[in-house]
Design a binder for these strands. Structure first.
Lengths: 192, 192
DNA sequence: GTAAAACGGGGACAAATGTCCTCTTTCAGG
DNA sequence: CCTGAAAGAGGACATTTGTCCCCGTTTTAC
């Protein structure tokens, strides 16, 4: 139910019932089925997305068809492709629903308007970007300096819920290793 | 000379002379010598920094002492550690001057004040963060999916000036490969 | 000006990882 | 409920990359 959004948003930024109603009134409600592509290369990303239920992933492919996952988002998390959304330029990313999902969408224009009406929302959304940057820097550091096994353990520690809901080949794709390497890491751990 | 800042900032956000004077009046001017450490793990990052001349790098180390470079900044670029600056928490990064450098510094408080007085500055600084996020995501993708040679070529193409001012072992450290691997890549290219 | 450190190429070898393949098992969708 | 696709383990082998050396040159700092 979309009520979950009301509860979530009130907990995270102190909003009046009227503010929540305002946000809801400008949102688009959407359901996406498992494997539905919500954004693909060449598209312009039009929405900021809040996940009420389900799960989506952000990924890119190389010319050889290999997929590389940048981000997962589950219940009560946000997803967008800011580069394309902000500048109105074609994206290079895919966004795909990994489960049947229930979403709320806002266009850039509506969200900007909301930020004017609700200053806390502006602060909150800036915070999300800054956190994303810190996370992504952390990930660069890990990818460069940690072994496949360390990164695998970190992933399970940091995203246990995601881990339990996705196939292993997507874990591999997120970690930046082949499925083979992941299998080997897991096998080595079983033997201990 | 610090005049460079005036020219730069006027070109990038349309400021009146008074606004520039206001920014300058709240800045701290600092010179740093080559190899000077401006921030180290455990410190709280107090400043946003503009590089008038010289060059700085942002990097982290692992327990084994290995260095991993996250970012370089040269003339007319900004540097800070936003995670620590924003939350007042101890950083895990180093910032080091790679050349004798001439810097302008603003505390978080002063910069926030300036953003209130100069709204364009706020927009500009948000833009810088968003660009940083896009860049860092790009880098995750490259680190995961491109070969050492591709990343090396990309680095030279994207940062030719930086490339010409740093030793090769720092290029390796930025690319996330050993100096040996970099040497091999370069050797292979000579032979073609 | 000089001693020490930094730089960076190269050999030998080991470890990590990828590719290609096969073979079960599980699961999704009509 | 049935069927084809997806998932994932594992073997064989090649490739990439790292580590540990050594060594000659260049640069830095006093």
């Amino acid at each position: 139910m979309a009520y979950d959004f009301d509860i979530y948003i009130k907990q995270h930024i102190n909003l009046s019932d009227e503010d929540v109603q305002l946000m809801r009134s400008m949102s688009l409600e959407k359901t996406a089925h498992r494997k539905e592509i919500l954004l693909k290369p060449g598209d312009v990303c039009r929405y900021k997305m809040f996940i009420i239920s389900g799960m989506v992933r952000l990924y890119r492919t190389r010319e050889d068809g290999s997929e590389h996952i940048m981000h997962f988002a589950t219940e009560n998390e946000w997803m967008t492709e800011p580069e394309s959304l902000n500048h109105g330029t074609p994206t290079t990313y895919y966004i795909e629903a990994l489960e049947d999902s229930h979403l709320l969408l806002w266009t850039k224009r509506d969200f900007t308007q909301l930020c004017v009406a609700i200053p806390q929302l502006k602060t909150y959304s800036e915070d999300i970007i800054a956190k994303n940057l810190a996370m992504t820097r952390e990930r660069v550091f890990n990818t460069m300096s940690a072994t496949a096994e360390e990164r695998y353990d970190d992933f399970i520690r940091d995203y246990p819920d995601v881990f339990n809901r996705i196939p292993l080949h997507m874990v591999a794709s997120y970690l930046g290793v082949s499925l083979k390497t992941l299998t080997r890491v897991r096998q080595a751990q079983v033997k201990r």
